[in-house]
């Protein structure tokens, strides 16, 4: 039984249709990459999954029964799905620690707040050093770490990561991907990651879906996608 399954999802903004019947699934413990260049609907799909955008059709199921897609974001978090949003969206004038503590806002997460905070400092030692600094003063790479750590404070079963590499220097992109790989190994987290950087995504993902014009154009294991002539043409135009 897949943890998260999306069936024939349609969504858009007003009259602009962005997703035209997307179906995918993420099984327990898997890391799945949502690939494709900008403007093909990756973030729109992420917003639907997180409850920020109401789909105009289709179905989102968690564990095959719980229906999402028509519920507000706070209920999606309560169901066990946390989104690391595009652009990180930290609270810039709150300290790193305050940002993380707010990640445990929901009453079930408050009970384990101190343990999770300790885990976060272990995973991100550099953040422990900067715990009292306001989040807005951190570098882009560190802010991305705060965003991931903050989402983990809610103890999600499924972590959605939207474009973790956007606006980061290549070396920092590799660092963020390393951290996601580490989390995958240590915690057995189920991850769906939207990412346009194919090579970096390929380092940690088990499978991938390539979105083109709001539809799944290709899907398969990352090895298959890497070999695929069609995907290469799509990405490199050659």
């Amino acid at each position: 039984m897949p943890d998260l399954s999306v069936t024939d999802l349609h969504a858009g903004y007003g009259a602009v249709r962005v997703l035209h019947g997307v179906s995918l699934n993420v099984r327990h413990g898997e890391t799945v990459a949502l690939l494709g260049t900008n403007g093909n609907g990756k973030s729109t799909l992420m917003k639907c999954l997180a409850g920020l955008l109401r789909p105009s059709g289709g179905q989102i199921l968690l564990d095959g029964k719980l229906e999402l897609g028509d519920v507000p974001p706070q209920d999606v978090v309560a169901a066990g799905i946390s989104l690391v949003p595009e652009g990180r969206r930290l609270f810039p004038r709150l300290s790193v620690e305050e940002n993380l503590v707010l990640g445990a806002f929901r009453s079930e997460a408050r009970a384990t707040m101190y343990e999770e905070l300790e885990k976060a400092w272990e995973t991100f030692p550099v953040l422990r050093e900067k715990r009292r600094q306001v989040a807005g003063s951190l570098s882009g790479g560190q802010q991305q770490m705060v965003a991931i750590a903050r989402a983990l404070m809610a103890c999600p079963r499924v972590l959605l990561v939207d474009e973790p590499s956007v606006g980061l220097a290549p070396i920092l992109v590799a660092q963020v991907i390393d951290i996601l790989a580490q989390l995958k190994a240590e915690r057995g987290l189920t991850v769906l990651m939207a990412e346009q950087n194919f090579q970096q995504a390929a380092r940690i993902a088990d499978r991938g879906y390539v979105l083109v014009h709001g539809e799944v154009a290709f899907n398969g294991s990352m090895a298959e996608l890497t070999e695929s002539e069609a995907v290469r043409v799509l990405y490199l135009g050659v």
């Binding site: 997180a50 409850g51 920020l52 507000p72 974001p73 706070q74 978090v77 309560a78 946390s82 989104l83 949003p85 969206r89 930290l90 609270f91 810039p92 004038r93 709150l94 305050e98 707010l102 990640g103 806002f105 929901r106 997460a109 903050r150 989402a151 404070m153 809610a154």
Partner: peptide
């Protein structure tokens, strides 16, 4: 304190 800084981000934390 957080809500005026980014209400959407707050909703994503539950």
């Amino acid at each position: 304190q957080a809500v005026a800084q980014d209400a959407t981000a707050l909703s994503l934390l539950g």
